[in-house]
Amino acid sequence: MAKRKLMTKKQRRTLATIFASMIALIALILAFLLVRNFIRQNSSLAQPPIQVKSIRQQHEEFIQSIAPAAVNSSHNYGILPSITIAQAILESDWGQSQLASNYHNLFGIKSDDPNNSQLLETQEYQNGQWITISARFRVYASFEESIQDHAALLANGTTWNKQQYQHVLASTNYLEAAHNLQRDGYATDPDYTQKIIQIIQKYHLDRYDH
């Protein structure tokens, strides 16, 4: 039977040195991790995390930003605020369309004046299909100005028919007004009425009508 070879003093000292070095390295790593965690916690307290707004919050902020002008135009021209706001939402894609974001035109109102309009492409529903056309659109200084001009259009009619939107003006609630927009020829989209009603009901825009 072979005899087990004992370690010499020198080997034991070497092993002890290695063991001590390992302990010191582990302690150093732990200290580093503790310091890093402390720094992260303190930096997060000093700088609150960025809060990302939900789509619903963004939509509600847009509604609130144009609601006062819609209510004001209702007093001046008799257009229900819910209709004005819903049309602005639908036609400007919540103020994000090129026409709205660059030129404050919320409703796609056209203009023949080259000094106060911009030539852009748009889609219109003709002969049972959507087509792309180029047209000149009015440029506004603000959303409020766009809303007032839209209300004036409904109240005063077109150059060829002053009574064109008489049924919209006579409407006593948003359901009547939405249907009468289609009836009076405001939009070519066959689903325009339903889209307006859905927006009003989803965001409870009729609260501005009272």
Rank of each mutant, 00 (worst) to 15 (best):
G157W: 14
N116I: 03
L119S: 11
E145A: 15
L34W: 00
V35D: 00
Q11V: 13
A187Q: 09
S117C: 09
F32Y: 10
F143T: 11
S97N: 07
K53C: 00
H59N: 09
D209Q: 13
I63M: 01
E124A: 05
P190S: 00
Q163F: 12
Y77L: 03
F143P: 02
F38G: 08
Q47W: 05
E61C: 07
Q51H: 06
I66V: 06
L120V: 09
N156A: 10
K202I: 05
T84W: 02
A88W: 00
H150A: 08
S65R: 00
I109C: 07
A155E: 09
Q51K: 02
W130K: 14
T84G: 06
G108W: 14
A141R: 03
N127F: 09
Q198V: 14
S134E: 07
L34R: 13
Q47P: 04
R207Q: 02
V35W: 05
H59W: 02
K10N: 01
D184C: 08
A88P: 01
I79Q: 04
I50V: 15
I26M: 10
N127P: 00
L175N: 10
Y203M: 09
Q163W: 14
E144Q: 03
S21D: 00
I23Y: 02
Y192V: 05
R56M: 10
I50E: 01
Q98W: 13
L34N: 12
F137E: 10
H59L: 13
L169I: 15
S92I: 12
K9S: 03
Q41S: 15
M7W: 10
F137T: 11
I89M: 06
A88M: 03
Q64T: 02
H104A: 02
E145H: 04
E124W: 13
